[in-house]
């Protein structure tokens, strides 16, 4: 298989069978935020469900390339059960890792996100990874305001 470096099997599995994806509008979430990349038309909506200070559950809906969908799917698994504060830190680490601000940030990330590492070699695709994470950070901010 070509492109195996970028499209790792884990990533493809998340793309083909995304976790926590809604076909319709996300219902009853504590906050829903949307991220869009007008360059490629990708759009991801992230809905967070809170329990006290923790993220109980995350759902997403939207359309995008394989990397965008896989990243959103992995996100929903990676943050379920984390504290809100811990999730915020994770969003920042993802931003630093993919923005090449902190190349070592990858080492701190959970195993479930390591399949995204290869995307760092393709600067044009980094936004595909970060779209859902930026929407998640916005959703946390929104929930905090409400």
């Amino acid at each position: 298989m070509i492109a195996q470096d970028l499209y790792k099997e884990t990533l493809l599995e998340h793309y083909r069978h995304p976790k926590n994806r809604c076909d319709g509008p996300i219902q009853d979430a504590d906050a829903v935020e949307r991220g869009a990349n007008p360059r490629c038309g990708d759009e991801i909506e992230i809905g967070i469900f809170l329990q006290d200070e923790n993220i109980r559950h995350v759902q997403f809906r939207g359309r995008g390339c394989a990397i965008c969908i896989a990243s959103a799917s992995m996100l929903t698994e990676a943050v379920a059960g984390l504290s809100v504060a811990g999730t915020r830190i994770l969003c920042e680490q993802m931003h630093d890792w993919f923005g090449d601000i902190e190349p070592a940030a990858g080492a701190l990330l959970p195993n479930g996100l390591q399949a995204l590492a290869a995307v760092r070699q393709h600067p044009a695709r980094q936004k595909c990874v970060l779209l859902s994470w930026e929407a998640l950070a916005d959703a946390i901010d929104k929930a905090g305001r409400e």
Partner: peptide, 14 residues
Amino acid sequence: NMHPHDMAQIAGEA
């Protein structure tokens, strides 16, 4: 069933 960016990426690597 394929995003244009994914098609272009695979094509590019080929």
